[in-house]
């Protein structure tokens, strides 16, 4: 504006920041669409205020319980649940890692012929599409209640997670190095060991540690559908309205997740 005032003889030139979406019709269509969606979306949430008011003292009771968690009354249950969760996590990660390697090799476009590629990619897709809890429901029905079903669930989820990321890493490797090793007359396994493993191993180890961390978090949840671990204990405590014990369980989960996250970050920084 001050420029226009300083040079009154020139025609005032306007400038506006060009919008992110060029076509004004498309732009307004998106705005209106988003608005309509919001109105309908929020409208379809019918919320019962009376129920909330009734639940309010429960909420207050819960916050109070968080300030005074009770670790002692249910300590045997809590410690058993935590131990179960930790063992489940470890077993699941080991199995998942071992199984994810061949799946990833099969799912790497530059290594696998396409029928194998299609099979491995669909294993990964199924494992990733379903939430752990959904898989746990099926596995509990198959293997019965308890941590075994939980461990299998987490192992299956690990295959999808690590398989996808490792396959992408393998697809991104430096092809010259592979070509050079192939040119020495190496066999297929030697090629894996000399050209591919050195390129993908450091990041893969980092991802395994990260997945260990995720598996523990998930192990706290799948217990709710009967797959063992601390989640089962939590579900029982909430079912009995024992908020102080539930708060103790939640606090222990937070502490362990915190420790796991920091040590996994430390391991990744220190060794890789």
């Amino acid at each position: 504006m001050s420029i226009a005032a300083a040079a009154p003889q020139a025609a005032p030139r306007q400038w506006r920041k060009p919008p992110f979406i060029r076509d004004p019709r498309l732009r307004y269509a998106i705005y209106v669409g988003a608005l309509i969606y919001l109105v309908i979306g929020i409208g379809s949430v019918n919320f019962n205020w009376d129920r909330m008011v009734a639940g309010l003292d429960r909420g207050i009771a819960f916050v109070a319980a968080f300030l005074a968690p009770d670790f002692t009354t249910r300590w045997t249950d809590i410690s058993k649940g935590l131990l179960e969760s930790l063992t489940m996590t470890l077993i699941a990660t080991v199995f998942g890692v071992i199984l994810s390697i061949p799946v990833a090799l099969g799912a790497a476009r530059n290594l696998a012929p396409w029928p194998i590629y299609a099979v491995c990619r669909s294993i990964i897709a199924v494992s990733r599409a379903f939430q752990e809890v959904v898989i746990a429901i099926v596995f509990v029905a198959m293997f019965g209640f308890g941590p075994f079903a939980g461990a299998m669930t987490l192992a299956f989820a690990t295959i999808g997670f690590l398989g996808k990321l490792l396959a992408e890493d393998i697809e991104d490797i430096d092809r010259d190095q592979v070509e050079a090793i192939r040119a020495t007359g190496s066999s297929w396994f030697q090629l894996l060991n000399y050209a591919i493993q050195p390129q993908v191993a450091p990041r893969f180890i980092g991802l395994c540690v990260y997945r260990l961390d995720i598996n523990f978090r998930e192990s706290a949840v799948i217990g709710i559908v009967g797959a063992g671990g601390i989640g089962a204990t939590l579900n029982t405590a909430l079912g009995r309205y024992e908020y102080d014990s539930a708060a103790a369980i939640l606090l222990s989960i937070i502490v362990i997740v915190f420790i796991a996250e920091y040590s996994s970050g430390f391991i990744r920084r220190r060794f890789l």
């Binding site: 949430v45 909330m52 809890v133 706290a220 949840v221 709710i224 939590l234 579900n235 939640l250 937070i254």
Partner: peptide
């Protein structure tokens, strides 16, 4: 650190199902 399912578990107690 707390999974959304656990948050839901707590919130259902307080706000009621829905």
């Amino acid at each position: 650190s707390i999974n959304s399912l656990i948050w839901a578990l707590l919130l259902v107690l307080i706000l009621g199902p829905g």
